[in-house]
Amino acid sequence: MIPGQIVACWIFLIAFVSGFSVKQAHVAFKGAIKKKPVAFTEPISPEFQKLSKLIVLDAIEDGLEVNFAIESTSLPERAILFLGSQELALDTHYLPQIKGRGQDQSYSFKVAAKEIPSALIYQATQKGESLVASLLLSSERAIDNIFIDLFDLKLGFDKPESLELPKRLGALPEIKHIFNAPPKTAPTVVAQFFSLLVATVSVGLVACWFTTGSVNFEGFPKGCPGGQFLAMMVSIVAMEYVFIKYYLGTSIFGTLWSALYVGLPGLWIGSKFLSNLK
């Protein structure tokens, strides 16, 4: 603490004498940067108009004091400073330090920025709402009890803080399921191009077979083995046909039966033909 932070620069004002004669009302600042106190030019009375000037606290270490003096003959039973947010409908209150004997009693409300409740700090720093400081001076059976808005308090520092309000029953945020993106498919042109490439290579294969002379029909089986050969070829083609039918939607059981009908005779005749080749 640096001594002499409170700048003693009193502006004397004789408050309007009503229920409580409040004098020398002003706001003093506590903090690293010295600031002149702000005096209330208007008398503290039920008709008091809120200060048009914003009161600003620049750092979290800063604080302010609302000071005034009241004549001992008319002291209020309750003296409370409220600090609140209208948006949140939330406030906190401060009790004064009362000093002095004799003619005047000095009242001093000390507000340290770091001791302001976090909900209010959040509202003031993150939502930019100015907090309202109001003063209550009242006594039982007094005629002119005072409950007035004194000034707007702005917190000029940034205290990144998330506000965690107490849990309350209510509707929860909506959730929509995010679906996996449908699988990407290639443009048909690309697929067609590659399919065509495969087809071309197939044609190339046959062409290659013929040009290299790998294909000659010199060994074409004739006579009885020729018949067996044809039967075997037919059964092979038939098997492939059965497979394609299966691919196009024939059930597995139908496929098994037809594969049996085609395959068994094919196997028999094929093995006969192949053993004849020896």
């Binding site: 290579v201 197939s202 294969l205 077979w209 790998s214 294909v215 000659n216």
Partner: peptide, 13 residues
């Protein structure tokens, strides 16, 4: 040996 040629070309394909 036409059969070997046949096989090799087929494999290449």
């Amino acid at each position: 040996n036409s059969r070997l040629k046949l096989i090799d070309i087929f494999c290449g394909f």
